[in-house]
Each structure stands twice: as C-alpha cells, then as structure tokens.
Nucleic acid binder design. Structure first.
Length: 254
DNA sequence: ATGCCTCAGCTCCTGAGA
C-alpha cells in the first residue's frame, strides 16, 4: 500500500499532471492541497475515469484539499471539529483501515503577524484533535503541506533563513508537539539524499540550484510505522513544464 | 530589493504563496 501527499497549486492548472503522475505511480491514497477551486468545479469524473474515488473540500481562490483513493473512504471529516475556520484546510477519512488526515497547514506569512497567530491557533487545535483521533484510530497517517521545517537539515540556507517563516522556533515547537503525540516523520526513517527538499521557490532558478525547503511531511502512528518500508520525495514532477512549486512525497507500507 | 515566479480574479493590477 502507498500513500502520497502533493500540494499542486491549482488543480485546474495541474489536473493533467496529477493524472499522469497517478498513472505512473498508482498510489492507494493521494492527499492534495491547494486545489484553489470551489466544490462545484472539482473534476470528480476525471478521477473516476482513472479508477479513483475522491473526497474534496474546496474553496474559492485559495486553499482546498482532497483525498484521492482507490478504495472507498469512510467517516469523512472536513476541517478541525470545534475550530471555527473560514478556510478549507483539512480532509480526513478512513481508508483500508487507516485513519488518513490530509492537511494544508497555514503559511503564517511572517512571525508576529495576524496570519502567524492564526497558524499558531490552528496548530494548537490540530494537535488536540489529532490526539483524540489517535486514541480512536491506532493506525493513523497525518500528511500534507505542513509549511514548517523540522530543523536545519530541511533548509537550504539555515543561516540566512534563521527564524524566518517555516523555520521559527515557535513553529518547530508546534511540530514537535505533534511528534509528542506519538507520531514519526516517515521520511527520516529511511536513508535520504543530501539536501532533501519538497518545495522550491518559483523565482531565481531555485529548483535548479536546489534552494529548497522540506515542508511536506508524512507523519505516522506506531502501528503504521511498523509497516513502513520506504518514504521519499519524488522530484520528477518539479521538472515538468508549468510545475507545482511542491513535489510529491510517497510512503510505502508492507 | 518589502524582488526575483505563479495563480486567481471584481483580471492590464493586487493579494497570497513560502
């Protein structure tokens, strides 16, 4: 079984690339972020034609998340229960006995800003909800665009980007709060290339120079960790014409 | 350089992304 996450920065623009990627990498679960379309515009038929079911939670212009699956999804939840939010950032469901939570974490823009404060509140609410979900579902995967680096290994220029957005101590403490629930960063379970990133700025030839960040993560509970056999970033789609700025991350389970 | 791309939309500029 394989699960993947990919921020595709507009599904309307990237649908052909997503379908091509699924044809070459027929994962069982693909969590998408930044659909950037309303629910009525979601291309459900295109996924059905490719042999996939879909659950989606869209929004005009910004955000929007989906779960693309081979198997049916049960007990779908949209956004964090009890946390009032205008923004469509979370979609969860149970697939093949695994509780899957796909999330597009807030960007935060700049430390000290109102958007940063929202990111902190959102992270607190996520943690308490995930704690409850883990109690109900021992096999759990939390995957998506976290917009947070774990440490300097995830940053192309840790000195120049010290305490900037995605790299602040406050954000990293919230990320460690999720780890503290008993989750594991699945990429770090396996040997990885040097300078292993999942996002590169569109500007300044950042991808060619490998000036990136690792901000897309797949966190797994112990029951899933025991089944994990591989996890890696797939950089190939970043080389496409008109690529997303993010690359997919893929987890393989025995 | 508070920019460099890219995308959506009340589209020929602006807000947001990260």
């Amino acid at each position: 079984m394989q699960l993947a996450t990919w921020n595709i920065n507009s599904l309307a623009v990237r649908l052909p690339q997503v379908l091509d990627w699924l044809a070459a990498h027929p994962v069982d679960v693909l969590a998408l972020q930044e659909l950037k379309l309303t629910d009525d515009k979601f291309p459900a038929q295109a996924f059905a034609d490719a042999g996939y079911q879909a659950q989606w939670f869209g929004q005009k212009t910004y955000n929007g998340v989906a779960l693309i699956t081979k198997a049916p999804v049960a007990d779908v939840v949209k956004n964090i229960p009890g946390f009032e939010d205008e923004q469509s950032r979370v979609i969860a469901g149970t697939v093949d006995g695994i509780r899957v939570i796909g999330a597009y974490f807030p960007n935060g823009q700049e430390p000290g800003s109102e958007k940063f404060a929202y990111k902190m509140r959102w992270l607190d609410a996520l943690r308490e909800w995930v704690r409850a979900e883990m109690a109900a579902h021992p096999a759990l995967v939390l995957l998506g665009d976290y917009n947070i680096t774990f440490d300097d290994l995830d940053v192309w220029d840790p000195v120049g980007l010290r305490e900037t957005i995605h790299c602040t101590t406050e954000e990293r403490e919230k990320l460690q709060g999720l780890i503290g629930l008993g989750l594991t960063d699945s990429v770090r379970l396996f040997p990885q290339p040097e300078k292993n990133y999942s996002w590169w700025d569109y500007r300044d030839l950042a991808f060619r120079r490998n000036r990136g960040l690792r901000i897309d993560h797949i966190l797994v509970s112990d029951a899933v960790k025991a089944r994990a056999s591989a996890c890696a970033v797939d950089k190939a789609p970043r080389k496409n014409e008109r690529p997303s700025d993010h690359a997919p991350v893929v987890l393989t389970l025995a």
